[in-house]
Design a protein around this nucleic acid. Structure first.
Lengths: 257, 257
DNA sequence: CACTTCATATCGGCG
DNA sequence: CGCCGATGTGAAGTG
């Protein structure tokens, strides 16, 4: 039997089933009327109501209401689950250290408890990620611009690793920042940090990070260029790109949108 | 009866129960052997295995394995759930528009199905958020620095609303950026954007965003100051704060850690 | 709607 | 274990 299920169990029955399930390493689903409290990185309290509590053998705990993709309360993997009957209620506690945090669920009534043996694949094949975008660019560098030559991915810098480093048709160093979706100003800031770090590393004067310094329009170009590759950018991001003298290349992770 | 539960149902039985549950607006929990595919913002495939599928009346769908806080696949609230029996399997499809995306779960065998009527509170009382940190500072501005006077929260600027705007003991404008936990360089970039926008708005020359311009050490101070309030900062963030001439104030959302 | 920012973000990779 | 950045991030607030 891969699933054990009890309907409207007493707290004692529920406790036995829970402890057996923990022992077996089963995935547990508990539904009933409960209150929830959390203390750790923050603190929270949730009044009485019907919720679905999922306890995973890796230590994860999820409290779900009838709304939202996110659990209303949770505990990350690596926690330890314990159960007991106290003051006429079934108490389930999940806690961990580093950081210290504890989730406590107190059931006044359990309406359904299921313990399930889980087997089978967990490996998800995902397509359309930033890595796909990088692969696409390495295979067809001209999509960034004619004459672009990638030299290195994850190239280290004083500001962290840059997505793609290369040179343009003139041999000028180019820092490329990749985003799989439409981006805001933060991505431009990220690109700017890498460009700045590389300018310092190469001892390039550049024209700095400020707009309107006056020596960009015309002949003097920055000696390290920044290119943001993303499907699209917000207006604010576009302004900031212009300020910094960076380019935007509209490109999706996959050939079609 | 607030919970309907069936063990090892036939696909037909499961389908009836599912359709009834959708009709009633119940929360559904389905466990069994299945494959999962998604297509939308990205695309993914997941081979056969035992998983827990949760279907919420608000349109959210969650596929959970025995590991991780996050569902291995999901569909956001606002989606529409449909079920059918096709090719000897129970097929559950959840889809939405804007963006167009579809989650498909195909069960070769359903081992447990529960439909649960959910009532009761969803309102979580949370403490320790950034808003708590703001409240703390507004009540005790001296925690930022002696003589600090908050003037406005969420003050608009060309770079978006700043957390707290005020003046220091000398009457110099101060932009305060709040973070509830330890921060990296991105937070400094965010603060820098606000400071810069305010300098432009006030027509202040300032000393720019670049370090080493030479006119900071000594008499000439920036005419708009930036202060980052957070429990702690990373080394890289500290460097960047120093570059920009910004201050860090170590403070937690709540009086104790 | 789009844009921006917060989150008990979670998660993975690297040093 | 801390730092850093990606995520089909999600969710809230605002214009």
């Amino acid at each position: 039997m891969t699933v054990t299920s009890v309907h409207d169990p007493s707290h004692r029955e529920a406790l036995w089933e829970l402890e057996d399930a923990f022992e077996r390493g089963d995935l547990v689903s508990l539904f009933g009327r409960c209150t929830v409290s959390y203390e750790g990185r923050a603190a929270s309290d949730l009044g009485a109501g019907d919720r679905l509590l999922v306890l995973k053998p890796d230590g994860a705990a999820l409290v779900h209401t009838d709304e939202g993709r996110q659990p209303v309360n949770w505990q990350p993997p690596g926690s330890e689950h314990r159960a007991a009957v106290r003051e006429g209620r079934l108490r389930v506690v999940s806690s961990r250290t580093n950081p210290d945090e504890t989730l406590t669920v107190r059931f006044s009534a359990v309406e359904q408890l299921s313990a399930m043996r889980v087997t089978g694949g967990r490996d998800l094949e995902l397509h359309g990620s930033e890595e796909d975008l990088r692969t696409r660019i390495l295979e067809r560098p001209d999509l960034v611009e004619p004459g672009f030559e990638p030299r290195e991915t994850e190239r280290p810098s004083g500001a962290g690793p840059m997505d793609v480093f290369g040179v343009d048709a003139d041999g000028t160093p180019v820092v490329v920042e990749l985003k799989r979706r439409r981006v805001g100003p933060d991505a431009v800031g990220q690109l700017a940090r890498y460009v700045r770090a590389l300018r310092e590393e190469l001892g390039v004067e550049g024209d700095g990070d400020l707009e309107g310094e006056g020596d960009r329009d015309g002949e003097s170009a920055p000696e390290v260029r920044g290119v943001l590759v993303a499907p699209s950018v917000t207006d604010r991001a576009a302004e900031r790109l212009a300020d910094r003298g960076f380019a935007h290349v509209a490109l999706e992770p996959a050939p079609d949108g």
